[in-house]
Write a protein that binds this DNA or RNA. Structure first.
Length: 580
DNA sequence: ATAGGGTTAG
């Protein structure tokens, strides 16, 4: 293949190859370009690319590079830029290393691209070694290279080094200023950022957006809004930044006002609003916005599937997920999608759907990261496979509060109370602060084992950790006290709750009254349950069960009339993702 | 023919 044809091919790949339709067009182009003298294997590979996801085309792009007789700095630069732009940072860096190994002098374009990729890694080893080469090869006066370098340090949180690069730059432009501004904002020092912002000689809309975003991320929406109003020019991103800020601080109403007021909206605006409504529990409004989107991409589906998963609508989450796979141009799920899907499976106690997905993981190019493993710990534990959960837990790279909480809860519902307590102590020993979900887990463990005093002590210790028990924690405590027969204590706890008891709390008391044959409290509990959830049949049968155990047959009989077709009793659930 | 900065998620 000639150098020129191959380079053209690379560029075509980069510019247009993102959907199946476009892939087909490329196939046609390849055929008409008389590339038939290519090695048969190579042609075969290109023709085989039944592609809907850019992840799949990486081998083809690399294979084009390897089929060049003498790939030069430009060809390498194109390919490195391709991977850097498509988010395949490891590939980009590895290609740069290969290029260096064969002794090619990198172009400033290639260096800028590879630095951008290095900036995405947590570890700054890569970036620092490229920095060394930058100095060795004399890119000191290239504003592009220097700015990417400065941005690398900014993004990795090393503002001091970023500042040093900035100060030593021979030439700066607004991108360099914006990059360092981003560094100050990421470091959370808003005062310093503000001073720097006012020093920027020719601020553009991105400088303003960054500063507004800094205030928004710091929860200072008044200041963000003040700056937003002062902006000489606003674009879509400016509006989206404001919406996102309001969503983050829970002001969905203000977010909506901005959303309605903005002159134009894109998918980011809609996705941000969907996430906002998901947080406020308005699933129907979120779905309305989702349906309004013309071209739904992976991010849109992920937002909506997550919304269902987080709002206890696992069936809807799975339906949407399956719908996404069955589309004409099917979207490939990613780690985020599967995280929500696993959570939905877990809420349903459905391992089958996961096992089906598991066999397709490789096709999707998904690797099991810590987030997914944590979701799976929860799923396996809830489905009773505590050993599998344990195995995943020990395989985690880093164990955070969510992982510990899922594992503690898993031990709790599987009757391994001592393991749960041990994990809890281990977690505290690692200076990880327990959150509300952790307490749900440990209290569930005590509850399962019937350890009333330990559970009660633990419940009371929550406030020592600065936590306010939620209604679900009260539910578990009422269940624990009630099952042990401490019915008056359970009732007193309900009466002293700082919030309105829900059907789960009263249901737990009702269940306990059924267990211990307490008519007086049972009637009170049932009354509340029926008032809160009149369509649930289980409450009636529990109450009638109480009457039956104490011989009040007539009362029992009255209740069994007309309860057919009502829902069975709801068992209080728990979710890691919503509890902070 | 190729490069750098701002907005979306658990």
């Amino acid at each position: 293949m000639s150098q020129m044809v191959a380079t053209k091919l690379i560029l075509t790949f980069m510019k247009t190859f993102s959907t199946f339709q476009q892939a087909k067009q490329i196939h046609a182009q390849i055929l008409t370009n008389d590339l038939t003298r290519l090695e048969p294997l190579f042609i075969h590979r290109i023709l085989l690319c039944d592609i809907t996801n850019y992840k799949t085309i990486s081998p083809y792009v690399i294979s084009i590079l390897h089929h060049l007789r003498n790939p030069d700095s430009f060809s390498w630069g194109c390919v490195i830029r391709f991977f850097s732009q498509k988010g395949q940072f490891i590939q980009a860096v590895s290609l740069y290393i290969q290029m260096r190994k064969i002794g090619l002098f990198p172009s400033s374009h290639a260096v800028s691209s590879v630095l951008k990729s290095c900036a995405k890694f947590e570890d700054d080893l890569c970036g620092v070694s490229v920095h060394g080469q930058v100095q060795k090869f004399g890119f000191n006066s290239c504003v592009y290279v220097q700015t990417s370098l400065l941005d690398l340090y900014s993004k990795n949180g090393d503002v001091l080094t970023a500042r040093k690069v900035f100060d030593e730059m021979a030439e700066r432009n607004v991108v360099s200023w914006n990059s360092l501004l981003g560094g100050y904002i990421k470091g959370g020092n808003l005062d310093e950022a503000r001073c720097f912002f006012y020093e920027i000689p020719r601020k553009d809309v991105i400088s303003w957006n960054s500063m507004v975003s800094g205030y928004a991320k710091g929860g200072k929406m008044e200041q963000a809004c003040y700056l937003f109003r002062q902006m000489p020019e606003r674009n879509l991103v400016s509006w989206n930044t404001m919406i996102s800020g309001y969503v983050d601080c829970g002001s969905i109403g203000s977010a909506r006002e901005f959303f309605d007021a903005m002159p134009k909206r894109n998918s980011v605006s809609l996705i941000t609003m969907i996430a906002g409504y998901s947080k406020s529990g308005d699933v129907d409004i979120a779905r309305e916005l989702f349906d309004r989107m013309d071209d739904k991409d992976l991010w849109s589906y992920n937002a909506m599937i997550a919304c269902y998963a987080q709002n206890s609508k696992p069936n809807e989450a799975l339906d949407l997920f399956n719908g996404m796979l069955k589309q004409e141009i099917s979207l490939h799920p990613d780690e985020m999608t599967l995280g929500s899907v696993i959570s939905a499976c877990s809420q349903l106690g459905n391992l089958d759907q996961w096992h089906w997905i598991e066999t397709h993981m490789n096709d999707y190019g998904i690797v099991l990261d810590d987030h997914l493993a944590t979701a799976l710990i929860d799923l396996y534990a809830k489905c009773g496979s505590i050993d599998k959960a344990c195995e995943l837990f020990h395989g985690l790279r880093k164990r955070d509060v969510v992982a510990y909480s899922a594992m503690i809860y898993g031990c709790g519902i599987n009757g391994k109370v001592s393991d749960a307590v041990e994990l809890f102590e281990q977690m505290v020993g690692e200076s990880i602060d327990p959150n509300l979900a952790t307490y749900t887990g440990i209290l569930t463990a005590y509850n399962h084992a019937g350890l009333v005093e330990e559970g009660y002590r633990c419940f009371k210790s929550m406030k020592d950790n600065g936590l306010v028990p939620s209604v679900d924690h009260y539910g578990i405590m009422v269940d624990l006290l009630g099952r042990a027969g401490w019915l008056d204590e359970a009732y007193r706890l309900i009466m002293n709750m700082p919030m309105q008891p829900n059907a789960g709390v009263w249901g737990a008391l009702l269940l306990a009254c059924r267990l211990h044959g307490n008519v007086k409290l049972g009637e009170i509990a049932a009354q509340h349950c029926i008032k809160l959830e009149s369509e649930t049949a289980g409450y009636y049968s529990l109450l009638s069960g109480i009457y039956a155990t104490v011989g009040k047959w007539n009362d029992a009989k009255k209740l069994t009339i007309g309860v057919e077709g009502k829902k069975i009793i709801k068992i209080p659930g728990c979710s890691w993702t919503q509890l902070e």
